[in-house]
Write a protein that binds this DNA or RNA. Structure first.
Lengths: 161, 161
DNA sequence: GAAGAATTACTCGGATACTGCGTGTCCGAGTGTAACGGG
DNA sequence: CCCGTTACACTCGGACACGCAGTATCCGAGTAATTCTTC
């Protein structure tokens, strides 16, 4: 059970866009070249960010993608959910109700939620809460503190000297 | 990104074994029939629990599986890691270092950990901590409180009236 | 009747296919740009 | 010189293949119980 590559690609691409001084759109090819990713597949990921109103797409010549809102208005959870979908980490198939054919199990036994599901859900809630608390702007600030030259490199990689 | 079916199967099977009054081993076929799961595939899952010292396997006639230790000594995290493996939720391919060919990026820029990875890791730590805190015995207690007849049903499903 | 050995039946364990999703690629629709011609 | 028109080049967007991990299955090695034979 692991996140898809798209999550990592999405976050880094959003950060790259944030380093730029202006709001000019950047084409997929440029964004992909910055980290040696597949342009076609990156495009698919970016489209999911557009549907989540995190990115904005500009068609036509000199088009591309740009941030739809500032990074302090985007949480890590937003990105993960946009790329991975909103499915829960733990999938409960309610197997506790299976295999009871002809057992005369009263309906009331399943009125309350599955204890396993509850326990897993609690952990997932903690995960989501931590992700929701951290905005991309904070991540950006940490990255800048760790390597002050990252902004310059991003601008160069995107052709904005 | 979701857990495999094996996690749900494993937890419910462990609970079923815990409802039994004695420590007699139970065959895979019986355990699988309790929740309409594939016996062959369940066997694979149970083997992973054996390697994690959660279950104990008894070969030969009248053999099967039984708990290797009481459920209060098994955390939810133990089960998840045993079935899913210890890989991190967020996979960081260090793409921040890619695409910098001929860019003369100093090594020091990558000395500190990736900010994205740190943020994701923090959320994952919260998830793991919550899972590690909850023992299977607690989950069992909740299940019993929700549906007091669950123990009886489990014993019947496993052929132990 | 008791002990021991051969047989049998049942179990786990790993090696072997199948399926669905993540991954990767391609081409068409649409749009902004730029060139071009006319007034 | 300015404006409208036309053609073009570039972009996103979705439809189309590929590969791998999760899923499912089967068969063989090994062991405990059972049965039969012998003392």
């Amino acid at each position: 059970m692991q996140t898809s590559k798209g999550v990592e690609w999405a976050v880094h691409t959003l950060l790259n866009l944030a380093w730029l001084p202006d709001d000019e759109p950047v084409a997929t090819a440029q964004l992909a070249a910055a980290h040696d990713m597949s342009p076609s597949y990156l495009n698919k990921v970016l489209q999911q960010l557009v549907r989540a109103d995190i990115l904005q797409s500009l068609p036509g010549a000199r088009g591309g993608f740009r941030l739809a809102r500032p990074l302090d208005a985007v949480s890590m959870l937003d990105v993960v959910l946009a790329v991975e979908g909103d499915k829960p980490l733990f999938r409960c198939a309610e197997i506790r109700q299976c295999g009871t054919v002809g057992e005369r199990v009263p309906e009331s036994s399943f009125a309350l939620p599955c204890a396993v599901r509850s326990a897993m859900g609690e952990a997932e809630a903690a995960w989501r809460k931590t992700l929701a608390t951290q905005s991309l702007a904070e991540v950006q600030a940490v990255a800048l503190a760790n390597a002050p030259s990252v902004a310059q490199h991003a601008r160069r990689a995107l052709g904005r000297t």
